[in-house]
Design a protein around this nucleic acid. Sequence first.
DNA 1: CTGTTAGCGCCTTCAA
DNA 2: TTGAAGGCGCTAACAG
Lengths: 340, 340
Amino acid sequence: MKKESNITIHDIAKALNVSGSTVSRALNDNSRISDRTKKAVRNMAKKLGYQPNALASNLRTSCTNTIGVIIPRISRYFFSSAITGIEELARKKGYNVIICQSNDQEAREADCVQTLFASRVDGVISSIAINTKNYDHYKTFTNRNIPLVFFDRVCEELETSQVVVDDFKGGFLAAEHLISKGCKRIAHISGPQHLNIYINRLQGYLKALRKHDINIEEDLIIESPLTREDGMACAKKLLESANPPDAIFAANDTSALSIIIYAKENGIRIPEDLAIVGFSNEPFSEYLNPSLTTIEQSGFDVGTKATELLLDIITNKTGNHQETIVLPVKLIERESSNKK
Amino acid sequence: MKKESNITIHDIAKALNVSGSTVSRALNDNSRISDRTKKAVRNMAKKLGYQPNALASNLRTSCTNTIGVIIPRISRYFFSSAITGIEELARKKGYNVIICQSNDQEAREADCVQTLFASRVDGVISSIAINTKNYDHYKTFTNRNIPLVFFDRVCEELETSQVVVDDFKGGFLAAEHLISKGCKRIAHISGPQHLNIYINRLQGYLKALRKHDINIEEDLIIESPLTREDGMACAKKLLESANPPDAIFAANDTSALSIIIYAKENGIRIPEDLAIVGFSNEPFSEYLNPSLTTIEQSGFDVGTKATELLLDIITNKTGNHQETIVLPVKLIERESSNKK
DNA sequence: CTGTTAGCGCCTTCAA
DNA sequence: TTGAAGGCGCTAACAG
């Protein structure tokens, strides 16, 4: 479906008896145009209802004022709030945002890369899929100097800037919180160990145990794909073992919630029996009973920071394109949280 | 930041000793090109690593293969799943998606319209902000024949196609469910009455009461802006009234959850005292204790349908541009749901 | 079946 | 401070 013909800079030029280039320059606030002319051009533009044609401009300047975003899934609160942060800043700076979801699958992530590349985005912000092990598809960008910034789930082997959350600290705080409640045998449902976030959460947890001279029991550390199904399996294993732990630190929401659901379904009263700390960003945390104590991270802030970094690179304001920004986490203890 | 020069169709043309148009046609699978030539062109394109420049194509054809989406907020599960549906289908059909959030504010919605218009989107899918009363900004699209489809929260005064959920049925099912549990005095926390969805939910509720000869008490019907704060106020009013209702039908998640939180904070045991039916799409509904019985609607389906409709209009496959599609709702009764 | 030609609307040298 | 001219890469007549 074609649009009807629109006002172009030449219409303005004709109306004002100047050349197209003058109009173009005036509209772009070029310093070599007199204020009088600029004003006249702008007025006429408004009068005629001129709408700049970004397409033509893009073709000419070969930059699209668009940034691409690749995320696992938009329906996870952490990511949708990251998007909100990205969008807000990007739009303020005159950029559009194209969002692609990898559904946490490597192959789809590669598709996203292709899509964004074909859209000629000026830069890309990405958080990698849970099962991505090979990062070659990202070379589509790096090989052509298209700026790339990772956030949250980052890729260390590509030399890019990144914005992460202090997962190590998060793991540490979570474990120490449970220790402070008197727990001695703290289980940890961890995630895939090729992902920075789960490695760091685990390491933080380990450090807290060591600091407090608590015996590290390998059996209490489970590496889980963090699906809901596996969460239930973990819950079963932990809650129904002969020697159950007295606390659980779950590496993400899904696993934490699985524990709660499993307990509820099987009549295990969590508040009395267990302490749980989830690693959560979902807004529903606070609705839960028993409430989780959670480690909160702001998707919005992460998104904003990543965008800031990316736009800096795009506009070449900074020389360092391998910056790593670490954002803080916060431990939120719910009122009705478990007290052992 | 400029991209380095790329392979164009002319490079392919030169390598093959044919004209640019032949290459263009071959790449676009034009029927007037021999299979032999097509194959040769495609091979050469691959060999040279050709990437079509959508910008140039867009400029020439004045269509961007991009659709715009306006939603209140991406972080609400219903909308993020709608986005997923939209994106999936759009991408399959070769369209990009630009998402704008109105934050439920009329002024920002108008900004979104401008942004999308400036991006020269081929069509728009929108769900209106909660406080939008004036729809003039949408005329930016309708005046220029840019296809527009509303979903969920629709605008009746603009003559466009729309995809909605069967809110009337939802309200009816919710109320009837509570009646079937033996409840007689069913309160309803409703939403702004200029929005189709809340009007219809209320009407459905009323119909159920009438059908079962239940007295309609005006005092039990509250029109709320559905913020969390107001939800708490409604909860207080209902739960602590001298003559509290024996059931509540909340028109959305926020209000339903507010009831639960308020009850929890104030030591009111909901399972024994109240039956609640929420109108919910959030994935966390099922984690709640006491669980809500909810009316489920699929954001994904709504998004998909809206996209289907929009793409049909864009590609002119259908003459009727004022279609209304109503998608079904489902009542989900949780196992641990309230039994009065 | 293929080539030639002429732009889409804008920006950017270069010249005045 | 302004104008003229050319071209970004592709497509769509119009010719063959």
